[in-house]
Write a protein that binds this DNA or RNA. Structure first.
Lengths: 246, 246
DNA sequence: GTCAATAAGATTGTTGACAATCTTACAAGA
DNA sequence: TCTTGTAAGATTGTCAACAATCTTATTGAC
């Protein structure tokens, strides 16, 4: 492949938020070389082109993108920060491969922080202009959940909804952490939503969340969010264990 | 100053935990060059030798430690991961300077995750051998709280206790995140415990937590931990606003 | 046949030089 | 006086070569 001159997205995603007050530094529209490389690799990893456990050689990546190893090194550090890549001293980088226990850990943290996030949104007076957007997506969700063949649409919409809510959080730090954790569990969340039954269960949680958000009930939004993530955790792990048995 | 041949600590701290099961990779006893540099800088920042907002020049650090800029760059990335340093593209690094809103954000996240952590410990059957250690430190706390002159001892013991509990968590990811967040709020936590009255309030929370831990009551441990952190948040912010008014 | 020592190759870690970019100071014009 | 333009210096970004370390394959001994 030739030089990088396209496709900025995933890496910068953490910075594209929809807030107003706190964020002082304007986000740069240009991506640095390491960021561009990281974005490319990120896409491959989350899409599954690069399998978990697969090694990533600095030399090879540098050659592919026609840059030196310096920017590649930094790109790998960026991906490590997102948890997509694991770096071992003097042994190089590889696509992160999570154990079932680790998947559980991440979902537990996500549950707690999604609760914090959604409580914050429920208690935010400026949330009202977001609610129609959220409601619309949840309507889509309900429609997709009724059609067993639209599983992929359902999953993508859930992800979108999650990104929407995270971007709506007032806390830049919460956004950063949640985006990273969500990306790490992308593949497993997908696994947990692979049956129509699970999707019908999931849509109920979302509808309940919407109600709490509308009512401005922070505590309830928090509880609902936590339950939702914990549910998806259990679904993911169940499927994971099925797969592991073979 | 001359070459680095001493003082490893802060940076490696995140890896020195007291768990058993999950962690596969044995922690390396040697610190890489970047880690050593990061440890040195970390000490200066958390101790206040380097003031918030102060710029950190790669060249200068490289010269001081007699290394090239490569390892220094990486050290700064490590510190950025811990939130101790802020890196701006093409404008270099500086010691992180948090706004009051950001301090609040971090404490909120810490509250949620400390809750998760302490619930996990309360529900962990193997926690029993830790309880005496924790109980002893809380006894110390109670003693220090009674003596207005032992404020520093109180604060250091609180930090120690926190590190102890974080290290006891089964989740490596939780440990990593919590260590980073705790380090970022070190100076502010200290601020919140600067009056004898606050310390007497604080020790009550710790005693209640100990009870919940002994009883194995996860829910209660979680609630207590959350309240404790939120309390220290409010104390810190109150002091911060007092200081800002002058 | 299994295990340990060894050597060759592969890969990351470090370095110093060069390029690109940003900051600052200063001067000229409106 | 304020803004704009310019140039010098400072600082980070990138590169290619070298050093240190790890992995793997092979050999030899038990």
């Amino acid at each position: 492949m030739g030089k990088i001159r396209s496709t900025p997205h995933a890496v910068r995603a953490a910075a594209t938020h929809a807030d107003a007050a706190a964020s002082l530094a304007a986000r740069p529209l240009m991506l640095s070389l390491p960021e561009q490389i990281a974005a490319q690799l990120s896409a491959r990893i989350t899409s599954g082109i690069c399998a978990p456990g697969q090694r990533i050689l600095e030399q090879a990546v540098a050659a592919e993108f026609s840059v030196s190893r310096g920017p590649v090194r930094e790109a790998l550090r960026l991906l490590e920060k997102d948890g997509l890549v694991t770096i071992l001293a003097r042994r190089g980088a590889q696509v992160t491969n999570l154990s079932i226990a680790e998947v559980r850990e991440i979902f537990d943290i996500r549950a707690a922080l999604n609760g914090l996030r959604d409580r914050g949104i429920a208690e935010d007076p400026t949330r009202l202009k977001l609610l129609p957007l959220i409601a619309a997506e949840i309507e889509n969700l309900a429609r997709y959940a009724r059609d067993p063949k639209r599983g992929d649409d359902y999953v993508e919409t859930v992800f979108k909804l999650n990104r929407l809510l995270t971007a709506a959080s007032r806390s830049a730090r919460l956004r950063t952490i949640l985006d990273a954790l969500a990306q790490q569990t992308l593949r497993y969340s997908r696994l947990g939503l692979s049956t129509a039954q699970r999707r019908r269960q999931s849509v109920k949680h979302w509808q309940e969340l919407l109600k709490a958000l509308r009512a401005g009930d922070g505590e309830r939004a928090q509880r609902t969010a936590e339950r939702r993530v914990l549910d998806s955790r259990d679904a993911a792990i169940e499927r994971l264990q099925e797969l592991a048995q073979r």
